[in-house]
Amino acid sequence: MAIRRVRAGLKGWGGVGAMAAVCALALAFVLLLPLTQSPGPDGAGTGGPGIAEGVQTRAVECRAPEKQTLAPSRADGPTIEAIKNRIGARRKLVVGVDQNSYRWGYRDPNNDGAQLEGFDIDLVHRIAADILGDPNAVQFKAIPTDQRIPAIRSGRVDMVVRTMTITCDRLGEVAFSAPYFRTGQQVLAAKSSSVTGYDRSLAGQRICTAAGSTAYTRLAKDRAAGLLAATADISTTVPNQLDCLVRLQLGEVDAVVTDGALAASQAAQDPTVELKGAAFTTEYYGVAMKRDADDLVRRVNRVLVDYRGSGWQTSYDRWLSATLGKDSAASKPPAPQYLRTS
């Protein structure tokens, strides 16, 4: 009954957008299941109350965070050996991903088995093939935005491949690969909205961001510095970014701020919303791992060297060209630099 009421309330937003909202609400419980029920890579349950507790971070001197990574190497080390030594059905790469970001990591109900697919998922399969010799030797775990770092630090996952921006703050808690995608923060709102972009038109508007996202961090800093109108309401945060689209469709917020690459995919789901203005930051997605997993970081960087030459463009053409345009130049990561030495 609840879902029928929501569906009825969404009339006027367009069939695709309404269904996106209903599906996202229905997925809320599914997204939380891996946090409480899934075993960690060692087979022990690691979900539960302790996972979101604060952790002490290592201080990191940070300049150009996308360059603070280790040089590529194919050599196995203790982290990779531990992955390879898993027995039987557990001999898999355990990866935190999204399952409701259209074209990035999502389940298409029209496909057989509704398997996870998308740009991030293609990269996961490539890494698994290199480390374990089997692109399907992967255990996917759906991780909410604000649980990405706790999932890595607790050992619930070997890595996170989930449109995760490399930042100086995050480098104090996890290690990143070299960038595999370039994007920037952008505003999403209804086509009929008076919002024109990241500007004065946001005054008095209710803005939604994902908890733990770089979007919220930027909005909070800009408002404190007087660069964002003091009347802009940034109090609405959600576990997963797609929930912001649902809030927008329900009329609970007036605008969404998120990575432009994700916003474009959401606009493709709902023809009544659109990107407003240009991107106002430059950000890079990276694969996140434990800080002491040096061999795994180096191995992923080795995979990315090959992937940029063979695989990246194919994946872009398949998943993202329809939402970001056929010209991928603006989305390609820069030539990698490896400034981290230890």
Rank of each mutant, 00 (worst) to 15 (best):
D134S: 13
P135K: 11
N136G: 15
V138W: 05
V138Y: 05
Q139H: 09
F140G: 08
A142Y: 02
I143L: 09
P144N: 07
T145S: 10
T145C: 07
R148C: 00
R148G: 00
P150T: 03
A151H: 06
I152P: 02
I152F: 02
I152C: 03
R153N: 13
S154I: 11
S154M: 12
S154T: 13
S154F: 07
G155R: 05
R156A: 14
R156W: 08
V157A: 05
D158E: 09
M159V: 01
M159G: 06
V161Q: 05
V161K: 06
R162P: 06
R162T: 08
T163E: 14
T163K: 14
M164V: 11
I166E: 02
I166L: 08
T167Y: 07
C168R: 07
C168K: 12
R170F: 04
R170M: 09
L171I: 04
L171H: 05
G172F: 02
E173W: 01
E173D: 09
V174C: 03
V174Q: 01
F176S: 00
F176D: 01
S177Y: 01
S177F: 01
A178G: 05
A178L: 01
A178P: 06
P179L: 00
P179K: 00
P179C: 00
P179M: 03
Y180K: 01
R182L: 06
R182H: 09
T183S: 15
V187T: 10
V187R: 04
L188I: 14
A189I: 07
A189H: 10
A189L: 09
S192W: 08
S193W: 03
S193C: 06
S193E: 10
